[in-house]
């Protein structure tokens, strides 16, 4: 496992991690200000944080009533 981790070229994989990070941060910032959720506020928090990548996207599409 160690060898595999070392063999990964991080400059190539980094964009994935960065994009996932930005998606999650933007979703959380939006979530913090919003008050028109479809369903429970904290459920959406867990969806954004726990489900990698897809969670924030689902939140952006379905999360708010607007």
């Amino acid at each position: 496992m160690q060898a595999i981790i070392e063999s990964i070229n991080w400059s190539i994989v980094a964009p994935f991690i960065v994009i996932q990070g930005i998606l999650m941060i933007v979703a959380i910032l939006d979530w913090a200000k919003a008050d028109d959720f479809r369903g429970s506020r904290w459920l959406w928090f867990f969806i954004i944080v726990v489900i990698n990548t897809i969670g924030p996207i689902i939140y952006f599409i379905f999360g708010r009533r607007r």
Partner: peptide
């Protein structure tokens, strides 16, 4: 913000 990011991914 999110649409371009998803398309890039």
């Amino acid at each position: 913000i999110w649409v371009p990011l998803v398309i890039i991914l």
